[in-house]
């Protein structure tokens, strides 16, 4: 039981992987599934670079064991296709080095789905979970608001 074969639902596909019970979801999706969009930034739940979406909610994949994800729907940045938030990030110059971007987008994407009418306070509450070291955050704010306004 220290190593298990588990089924993960990732981006609509059923994937069978062998993991240590102690492996995080981040380690499994990057190392076992080759989905390297989610990034390690702290492995401690502090930076949000590894954020994915689990059953509709944002999740720091470094804070979740892979085996905890069994039976849940996991969406990674690779599972998003031409979403408005991705386009808004491009148009608003909401990233520079791009390392925090997948995590930020996954969090924004979840926010837009859960709270299509999010106000400033809600946006702040959600987005303070991620660190961007390149921008001053105003570009990200513009990007997420541009999508929310369309709702």
């Amino acid at each position: 039981m220290k190593t298990q074969i588990i089924d993960l639902h990732v981006n609509g596909n059923l994937r069978t992987v062998t993991v240590r019970s102690a492996d995080t979801l981040l380690y499994a999706i990057r190392g076992k599934l080759g989905l390297t969009g989610a990034k390690p930034g702290c492995l401690n739940g502090d930076c949000g670079a590894c954020t994915v979406n689990v059953d509709g909610w944002p999740m720091k994949s470094c804070l979740m064991l892979a085996i905890e994800a069994v039976g849940k729907n996991v969406t990674t940045i690779e599972g998003l296709k031409n979403t408005p938030i991705q386009q808004a990030f491009i148009e608003n110059f909401a990233f520079q080095c791009g390392y925090c971007t997948p995590g930020f987008i996954m969090n924004c994407h979840s926010l837009i789905l859960k709270h299509p009418d999010a106000d400033d306070a809600t946006i702040k509450e959600w987005l303070e979970s991620n660190i961007c070291r390149c921008t001053g955050y105003t570009e990200i704010e513009k990007a997420v608001k541009s999508v929310l306004e369309k709702n």
Binding site: G48, M59, E125, E128
Partner: peptide
């Protein structure tokens, strides 16, 4: 509770 850690972490 809403001041603990951050929003995403509080989902866990």
């Amino acid at each position: 509770a809403s001041e603990v850690a951050d929003h995403t972490s509080r989902g866990k």
